[in-house]
């Protein structure tokens, strides 16, 4: 049976893809291998977790050049007898997925959060209708390109020793020029990547409560996110911190929700958190029904107490 190939330019995501590939391989009885591009460290890391890694070392191949990357991966897939390629569904991976799928003649799904194994067929779970629903979909073409959402799978825990071998591909002449790469300013936060979130809602009524919430975030090593009105109307936080239908869909391990009533437009953005805590002065807030732990109380009383116990 043809195998599975994984690729991400980011090692952490590649390790998650390896776990996704391991589960898929187990269900479909396929081997899985990895390709890494201009990234020795990643090759070694993947090999250390038992993967057979094919390393492309061509400095003229830039991740920014989606066409050249798709071509390189296409050639790798041809050489390795695989019929499924897993990519990361971050922005880089999503952009690559469509181009690779078209070049390789594959059906493609992105933003996949989970495997759903039906009798002999593998389906993918992903958000649809702007987050209102979860679709279970199957790619029916012989070749598949599947982009897996970050944090959907835990990084693979390999035991045996894998291998790294070189892979040769023909590099197409680049049609774009990467002029500059700028790392984003230090205070830019990716709430989707955060393992823990403190989410500020409209029940956080003043600056003092907001400051308390931010302090709680520091203690819990969490990032601060918010519901839409807090950013759009009150402008207390930047818009890229909005959780929900009109913001980001997040899947942290822990979400502590402060003063959010719990409308569906908000909850779609946080419902996949592993543990949800709702702190609200209204014991009947709808958010409380969507929480694992509920604490009813005034934020100005509750937050300082939480600080006290957490810093002990």
């Amino acid at each position: 049976m043809a195998g599975i190939l994984i690729y991400s330019d980011k090692t952490r995501l590649a390790l998650e893809l390896a776990e996704a590939a391991r589960q898929l391989g187990l269900a479909e009885d396929r081997a899985y291998k990895a390709v890494s591009i201009n990234h020795d460290e990643q090759s070694l890391e993947l090999a250390a977790r038992g993967l057979e890694v094919f390393s492309i070392q061509r400095s003229e191949l830039a991740a920014a050049d989606t066409a050249a990357m798709a071509s390189a991966l296409c050639q790798t897939a041809e050489q390795l007898d695989v019929d499924t390629i897993l990519l990361s569904s971050d922005r880089r991976g999503k952009e690559l997925a469509g181009r690779l799928a078209e070049a390789w003649g594959a059906g493609c799904l992105t933003g996949v959060k989970e495997w759903v194994f039906l009798e002999g067929r593998t389906a993918c779970a992903r958000s649809a209708l702007g987050g209102a629903t979860e679709a279970i979909q199957i790619i029916n073409s012989p070749r598949r390109v599947i982009a897996i959402s970050p944090r959907a799978f835990i990084p693979v825990e390999g035991v045996e020793k894998g291998s790294v071998q070189p892979m040769e591909v023909k590099i197409e002449a680049s049609t774009i020029k990467l002029v500059e790469t700028r790392s984003l300013a230090g205070d830019t936060v990716d709430i989707q990547a955060a393992a823990r979130l403190i989410v500020v809602g409209q029940g956080v009524e003043n600056q003092e409560e907001l400051t308390r919430g931010q302090k709680l975030a520091v203690l819990l090593k969490a990032e601060v996110a918010c519901s839409k009105p807090v950013a759009s109307d009150k402008k207390w936080l930047p818009e890229d911190r909005i959780v929900g239908l009109s913001g980001k869909l997040c899947k942290p391990d822990l979400a502590v929700i402060l003063g959010v009533s719990g409308q569906v437009q908000f909850t779609v953005g946080i419902r996949e958190a592993r543990v949800i805590v709702s702190i609200n002065k209204d014991e009947n807030a709808f958010m409380n029904k969507m929480a694992d732990y509920v604490l009813v109380g005034d934020l100005l009383e509750v937050l300082p107490e939480l600080e006290k116990y957490l810093s002990q």
Binding site: S261, Q263, D282, N284, A285, F286, K289
Partner: peptide
């Protein structure tokens, strides 16, 4: 829809 009484909207 938002306001609840004894747990129900």
């Amino acid at each position: 829809r938002q306001k609840t009484h004894r747990g129900d909207p």
